[in-house]
Each structure stands twice: as C-alpha cells, then as structure tokens.
Amino acid sequence: MTARGVRWAVTAAVLAVVAAGCGAVPSAAPEIGGRSAVVPAPAGVVELTAPPSTAPGADASCDATASFRPDGPLPEPGRMPAGTTMARIRDKGRLVVGVDQNTYLMGFRNPFSGELEGFDVDMAREVARAIFGDPTRVQFKVLTSEERMPALEQGQVDVVVRTMTMNCERWQRVSFSTVYYQAGQRVLVPSSSDVTGIDALAGRKVCATKGSSSLANVANAPGKPIPVAVPNWTDCLVLLQQGQVDAISTDNTILAGFAAQDPYTKVVGAVFTAEPYGMAFPKQDQDFVRFANALLERLRADGTWAALHRRWLGDPPPPPVATYRD
C-alpha cells in the first residue's frame, strides 16, 4: 500500500468514527399523557345554544290557574259513579301516578327505606285515598320533567303530581287541577359566590332540567346566562358541587331541597316568576279533574293541606285560592 493509500484509509477511518459518535437516535418511549383531566358528567347533560321551544311565560292567552269547577261533593271512597274515569281506576285496582324521585322534599326516594316520599307524593296518596279509601293503592311511575306531557298523552299514567307548572302552552295538551302549591323561580349558588340573582349570571352556566319551565325561564332571562340542561334535578346539584355550573335556577321548593342537602349553598335573589303547581291529567279526563278539585277544596278546608305543608316544607302559609273556568 502506498503512503497516499494509507493517508486515505486513516482519513476514512477517522471520518467513520466521528460519524458514529455524532449519530443521535431519539427514544421511542411515548410521552406521559393525562395533562388535562377528563371530567365526568351526568348522562344526557347538554349545554343549550338556543332557547328551548317557545317561552311559556310570554303566552298569556289564557288564565292558566283556572280549572274545572267540582260538580258536587266528593263521592264516598270506593263508590265512584259508574262510567267515570274514577270508576275505571277503581276497577283497575290502583292509581298510576307520575312522580319524581329526585326532588328532595317534593318527590324523592328515601335512601334509608327505598320508599318514595315528599309533598307531591303525599298529595298523590290523598287522591288514592279519595278513590279507594286506601292511600297505598298507588303505582308510582318516575318521570323526568321532559317525560310528563308524553306520559299523559299516551295514557301511561292517570295523573302527574310532579312540581308541574300550569301554563297556557301545557293547557293545550293536558288538563290541570286547581293550584295546590304556589312556587316561584329563584337562584341557588355556592355560599362563596358573589352572585345576587338571575341578572348577575350573564355568560355563566346555569343548570335546569330538560322540558321544565325553569329551563325556558333561564334561557329567556335578560342577563343571557348559558342554560345547561340535565335529565334530573339532582344532576344539577352534582354539577354545582363539581364546579361544572355556576348556579341552579328553578322553583324555590326545589332549591330548598338542594340547600337542605348541601350546607355550602345559598338561595339568592328575588322570586322572578310565578310557578303555580297543578296536578296534570290527560286532556279528556275532565270528570277526574273536577273530582280532584273537589278533593283539593276539602284538603284546604280540613287542614290536611296545612299538615302536609308543615311535614315537608315548614310552617304553612294560607293555601292557594282556587279559581275556576267552569
């Protein structure tokens, strides 16, 4: 080998060694993920971008609280006039009632006993007592806010007693009894919040259930809050406790139930809507509505209404006054 050959060989060898030292092969191990937590949510939670259907408050085409006048005194329990809806229910052997199991104090499942309890549930039992003479002849069917109207229209239930606001839009499709409870919408926030009412919630998330008048009221509030819709009222409390919404807005009765379950919340602001609750019946069952109104007259007069109010909702105000459309 010549001297030149040797030089070339040495140069090549040095270059090879340098190249070997320079090579960089990055690690193929994956990055550790999980930089942002995935927050769990109740099933069926929706953030609304547009108001739900029509605004019930705006529809003043009727007197929503006026119901059908009772035709005479209540019949004896168990002796319903032949051919009436009540006689059909008596023959069936049980009253099918649409209620809630998620609204503390109104209609809820007692976790200790597993039984359904509350003001609405007791009202339903009074109807059963009037038909059968036995308040336990009830089959409860739990309904979400959204399912109340379809359940009545399809005849799945005989009556709905479930914090249901009477309004003209609903009167088109179902019949209501006279008012058995006068509620009004307010706002519930965490006790550390500086929110003072519905108008202070501009651009913030406010929870209500799908198909409720509360949701429509939130969507139509002048402050333009962001409505978040869930299937059940307790889902709202979960979202509030997990910091996923800033407030819950609905009837003061329901909010009182939340405040009773969570001492770190407060109800703020004035009552900004009137929410008269009525028992809802299939539209054609006018005889049953008149029967229920006769029953309500009696419950108001004999102190039963006041006793039920005291049991669930505290010291009773005077019972709501019945108005009729004949």
């Binding site: 769990p40 949510a41 109740p42 099933a43 199991q101 998620n102 609204t103 503390y104 809820f108 499942r109 007692n110 976790p111 200790f112 059940n232 307790t234 889902d235 409390l237 979960v238 406790q241 139930g257 939340f258 379950q261 969570d262």
Partner: peptide, 14 residues
C-alpha cells in the same frame, strides 16, 4: 339521607 347520592351513582354508572 341525601337523594343526590343517587345522582352521583348515575354519574358513576354513566
């Protein structure tokens, strides 16, 4: 005795 427990269970199940 808080009914909201059932809602947490539903969220867990979901």
């Amino acid at each position: 005795g808080n009914p909201v427990g059932a809602a947490y269970l539903r969220e867990a199940s979901n």
